[in-house]
Computed example of a mutant assay.
Amino acid sequence: MVRLNRASQTYFFPVHLTDQLLPSAVFYATVGPLVIYFAMHRLIIRPYLRAQKERELEKQRENTASDILQKKQEAEAAVSLSRN
């Protein structure tokens, strides 16, 4: 049964699934979605997040390498100006 309270009114929605309580149906209704969730999390979501994190790290490495190269060139230019 689903109950919804809105202002001073209460709505009841009876949800009748079956006359009998079958243990196998209860088992599959609880275990099935959990297994599907964990499988999707393990096989799809984790690898995607891991790949995304690796892409971000690689981008940071490239940015850092270009910054270091630029600063090195600036330092060499400053040294060559001071020698002259």
Rank of each mutant, 00 (worst) to 15 (best):
R50G: 00
P14D: 15
E74V: 01
A77K: 10
A75E: 13
E58L: 14
R83A: 09
V31P: 00
Q70N: 03
V2Y: 08
L17Y: 09
L69H: 07
P33Q: 12
E56N: 04
D19V: 01
V79K: 11
Q20R: 14
V15A: 11
A7E: 12
L21Y: 06
E56R: 14
V15K: 06
V2M: 11
F12W: 06
E76R: 07
L81K: 15
E54L: 09
H41T: 01
A39V: 13
F12E: 10
A78Q: 09
A51I: 02
A51H: 03
L69V: 01
S24E: 13
Q20N: 09
G32H: 05
R42E: 09
T10W: 01
Q73V: 01
K59M: 02
E62A: 14
L69Y: 06
A7Y: 09
E74P: 01
M40P: 00
I44V: 15
R50V: 05
Q60S: 04
S8L: 07
T10R: 14
F12Y: 12
L21H: 05
R55H: 05
E62Q: 14
Q70A: 11
L21D: 05
H41Q: 12
D67I: 03
P47G: 04
L69C: 02
L81R: 15
S8D: 12
L81I: 09
V35D: 00
V2A: 10
M40A: 05
A65G: 00
K59D: 01
R3V: 14
A75Q: 11
V15I: 15
R6T: 08
T64Q: 14
P47E: 02
E56L: 13
F27K: 13
L69N: 12
K72S: 11
K53Y: 06
I44M: 12
H41R: 10
I36H: 04
M1Y: 04
V35H: 02
E56F: 04
Q20Y: 08
L57T: 04
A39I: 13
T30K: 03
E58N: 13
N5Q: 11
V26F: 05
L57Y: 03
R46I: 14
E54A: 12
Y48E: 02
L22H: 08
I44W: 15
L21A: 07
F12I: 11
E74K: 06
